[in-house]
Amino acid sequence: MTVASDTNGGEIRQLRPGLWETVNERYPGSMITKSDFVPLATLSVPLNEARVTFVSTAGIQPRGTMPFDTVHPVGDYSFRRVPSSSRPDDLEIHQLKYPTFGAERDLNVIFPIERLRELVSEKVIGELTPDFFSFIGYNMDPERLERTLAEDIADAVCEQRPDLALLSPA
């Protein structure tokens, strides 16, 4: 691990070397094994011109859509499109695996849809993709997760041609 500082005083840690081995050692069978190195994808346009999307495991979905199956023993391998124009009141949370007491009061603590729209208004970022994307993190078959849900979301995200994707666990 290498450690450095950024200009704002934040601490930068390089965790890639050995990361997956450590996770798989501590949680056997729970993670996809990755021995290959994922190359850095650099931003190809200035941030204030970038089209941004957001992908979350928070189980956020528009009211009235099929709820995630939060009690299935091996998980739910589907995802929901969340229009980036949604108001928080248009959305609901179907996920049992993280504390939602903050998100129930202000969804932006886990799905910062209003903050991202504000950054577009202020021209900090260029625009948002029409949809954001959400699924639940409780999926106990990592091979199936990679083969189905991960591929499905990647296809759906790429269709909306973002320059930059923010990915957030819950």
Partner: peptide, 30 residues
């Protein structure tokens, strides 16, 4: 469950996003 801060703390929520965007923009290593 609170990766962007605490409820109604707009400045903190905004700061966390901006830190990530800035980091992405200047990243040199995967």
């Amino acid at each position: 469950g609170h990766h962007f801060g605490v409820p109604f703390h707009r400045e903190l929520q905004r700061r966390i996003i901006l830190e990530a965007l800035s980091f992405i923009s200047s990243a040199t290593e995967s």
